[in-house]
Write a protein that binds this DNA or RNA. Structure first.
Lengths: 116, 116
DNA sequence: GTAATATATCATTATATACTGATACAATGA
DNA sequence: TCATTGTATCAGTATATAATGATATATTAC
């Protein structure tokens, strides 16, 4: 269904996690952990195409995970909240312990993080 | 691509988040926050079909987010680590502040959490 | 004005994945 | 043994979504 006024808290939370659940968006978020970056910066860092990066940034922005600061031709993106980085860190730590399980999970395939 | 020996840490982390990024799986995780539950319990709580619940549980188990304890005909599922609940809580808090953003994000549609 | 640069958006396509019904498997009890 | 119950798995389908190339928009420089 499309988002409606009855959209539940669970649906919202799932959507929030979806922001983290793609290797491309994750690469972008990790890059932004270092500080504010322009789209071009992120294109260079990640190796993804510019429209792809812009598209993911739009998603991340719409979902409140990043914010933009427009200046001239440049758009400077940064994490919107310390808790975004905190979530990434916590996931990292959890992953360290459950890595083997995730690694062996063949239920879902994953794209190559270098722009498949 | 399929998971290979070159699967990066970013891909793994994305996959971890994918466990949280679906309303059905999230409902299951939230239910498990209350404690150990059988598949039937979860079917009743969530209203999803049994194969659907089993399938999501398999995913969550493969990815290390939940563990099973088999006893007779019953399979008792529980969260595998305190950090799973911690991640859920942190997301809740983040959501409270960025809720408007997530709410207005129409980039992705979401399924009805009551088994669409 | 025109060119160049930075970014966003669109239409399209290929793939991923959530769901269902049917069915298999396993354990218990009569 | 046979029926029942709890769970897992499979094939098939519909939908979601990530990626691309083309293009639009906006700002700056010449």
């Amino acid at each position: 269904m499309l988002i409606t006024s009855t959209t539940s808290s669970i649906d919202l939370q799932a959507k929030l996690f979806r922001g983290f659940a793609d290797p491309s968006r994750l690469s972008i978020l990790l890059a932004l952990r270092e500080g504010e970056r322009t789209v071009s910066d992120l294109v260079e860092t990640t190796g993804f195409t510019q429209p792809n990066v812009s598209n993911h940034l739009s998603c991340l922005r719409d979902c409140g995970l990043v914010t933009v600061r427009q200046q001239g031709r440049f758009a400077y993106y940064s994490l919107s909240d310390d808790r975004v980085a905190k979530l990434l860190l916590l996931a990292d730590e959890l992953l360290a312990d459950v890595a083997r399980g995730v690694y062996e999970c063949t239920r879902y395939t994953i794209r190559d993080s270098k722009n498949g």
